[in-house]
Design a protein around this nucleic acid. Structure first.
Lengths: 356, 356
DNA sequence: TCGGTTTACGAAATCGGTTTCGTTTCGAGT
DNA sequence: ACTCGAAACGAAACCGATTTCGTAAACCGA
């Protein structure tokens, strides 16, 4: 005989069905709450197939859902992954968010997101906010300036860095193989006949990623004996564009190849070039990082170093899960995982902008 | 004299400082846990300025942070807002996420995000996942196909729809003033001399937003006595583009004006036009919805109906907070808020593509 | 058939806050 | 001085699950 839940509002009129508690389910199934809990978490201590079926039936019929807060309190696990993104306007970030969302869901976790907007203060605030909320682990795409705080956080709970490293390196990092991607773009430009290469960067962007790409670019030029330089655009439209015009004019006559260090720089480059004419100046070849939708369209297609965002996301979540499992399994003294740097190979999309 | 927390690991060697509990703080401050709790939530039942200071000092010194799970369990509030986005690749969504993040943070809430990727099944799954996680309220940018489930959810907890409505309308909605934006774009094209207007849509997109814009477009043509039609592109590149070419050829000689119903359609339009030549066919004018970064660049700037994403986000969170407050304050029987439809005015960015 | 080991399950403690309710203290009014 | 109401605070119940520990039943080989 079905027993009413203690909290059921069952006046004859108000048929607001009860929020069931685990003990209500247990009572209806004729077992103890402990057994229902075991069922819910399908624990090693098995139960009779018959008991299992009876519990399943009751849960099915009542539509019972365990309250997460109670579960979290006792088990001190939330199945929540905190994500801090520096700049969600960047399509890399949105792609990453989608990837993380999928990978996390596959492991039964949800995402708590915070967006720093490239503001270190907000990033720091997000850090404590998410930790206070009790996330099991943290994915951080840092904007810089919080290296100590992040390292400290990594000491208290699992943290995996996304794309951007922190100074002292004691934290897991998943990133693209930037050096090889740079080489790939240089390849493409060289093959298209460029004699002189420029890597376009932005003054405001001092991220480790930019630095890594710039270094790789310089190394690559050296290795091949090519001429070229890193051109840093000033911030905010006009000045920067002026600087770019000058660069292009300086090299007029030479076969120039340009690499935009990221998608935003590429847009500014496009703007600048638009002032020179609707199509590319003769002999000018272009390539860029970050595979944005407009890359297919501008200049009839821009050769692009595309990052494998889905795989990056998957590996981030995988690594984070490893750490979370370790934390919840071991006593936490000896079993520290050594920090790990994971590089996910991207690939070059060859398009019209580097055809001969 | 400071008293050790019960859970402190204080062997002489392992100086892992304790996770403090509220009772530890209470003990150190010489008050009861209840008082500390009152302090933490600055409750109406005031306390002596002196007590307050003593508690504050202890908390400050120990760096105590209350465990969210425990708080959630007892108070059955989580300060979490669930967000379901249909398509994060859409810059409208990312802008919205940032706005929501800011507005929520201003109210002390964090965001739990789920991404449906325009898949109704995943949307439904996200719905239950977020509700099970105990969010206080839900922001849904639905991809359609779950109208009943969403309405049901809205019956159980506060829900505000973002940009896209559900069928039976009993749920709060915040959206842009699409009709006026359509009128604005038609204005711009007409002023640029277009005699014949097309609204370009996609077959796969059957969202209420598309329908609203299409209806407004038809109405607007009627009202002004302009000729034109809604052109639905087939899905997947080639066919759709062919259809578009045909449209353009059909109208050759007439002064044609095109409106892309959203940013993705605009990109496909751009692709198609690129096959015709690097610059716009003579007399062809273009306008689009959604203010994406590339809009500044393509065709030297495309006239755009820009939505006020920040305000939309702010109003969504505001409305959701109202509902959450009502739920937690009242007994929940009589005090139902009537569903509300909130329109946030966007504006038209006039750019080169509709100059004469 | 009998000791010994699993296996299935229940009773009760527990997680760490919040909330209710009651008691004491304090100050104002007469 | 005495009463009364409000303010300040403490004791203990409580939120709803998980987890530990203990026990009875089932199984099993000798």
């Amino acid at each position: 005989m079905p027993k009413m839940a203690q909290t059921a509002d069952n006046w004859e009129t108000g048929c607001v069905m009860a929020q069931m508690r685990i003990k209500d389910i247990a009572a209806e199934a004729g077992v103890s709450p402990a057994t229902v809990s075991r069922y819910l978490n399908n624990r090693p201590g098995q139960m009779t197939e018959e008991t299992r079926a009876r519990i399943a039936a009751v849960i099915e019929r009542t539509g019972y859902r365990p309250r997460a807060a109670a579960r979290n309190l006792r088990s001190s696990r939330t199945n929540l992954i905190g994500v801090i993104l520096a700049d969600i306007a960047n399509p890399f970030s949105s792609a990453m968010l989608e990837g993380l969302s999928v990978s996390a869901a596959a492991r039964g976790c949800s995402l708590m997101t915070a967006i720093s907007g490239n503001d270190p203060a907000k990033e720091a605030e997000s850090l404590t906010r998410l930790i206070d909320a009790g996330v099991d682990g943290l994915v951080v795409n840092t904007c810089g300036g919080n290296d100590e705080a992040i390292a400290a956080a990594a000491g208290r709970l699992p943290v995996v860095l996304l794309d951007r490293d922190v100074a002292d390196g004691g934290v897991d990092l998943v990133t693209s193989n930037n050096r090889e991607l740079v080489a790939g773009l240089v390849d493409a430009l060289a093959a298209a006949g460029s004699e002189r290469l420029c890597l376009l960067t932005e003054a405001s962007d001092d991220s480790p990623v930019r630095r890594e790409r710039a270094e790789a670019f310089a190394d690559e030029l050296l290795r091949r004996g090519l001429a070229g330089e890193v051109v840093t655009l000033a911030d905010g439209g006009a000045t920067g564009v002026g600087r770019l015009d000058k660069t292009i004019r300086d090299y007029a006559g030479k076969r120039l190849g340009l690499i935009a260090v990221n998608g935003l720089v590429f847009l500014r480059l496009t703007e600048a070039l638009a002032q020179l004419g609707p199509s590319l100046p003769a002999g000018l070849k272009i390539a860029t990082f970050d595979d944005y939708p407009w890359n297919h369209v501008l200049f009839g297609g821009v050769t692009t170093a595309a990052q494998d965002t889905l795989t990056i996301a998957e590996r981030v979540v995988e690594r984070l899960s490893e750490r979370i499992d370790v934390v919840t399994t071991t006593v936490g003294e000896a079993a520290k995982l050594a920090p790990k740097r994971i590089e996910i190979p991207g690939h070059i999309e060859h398009r019209a902008s580097t055809s001969r």
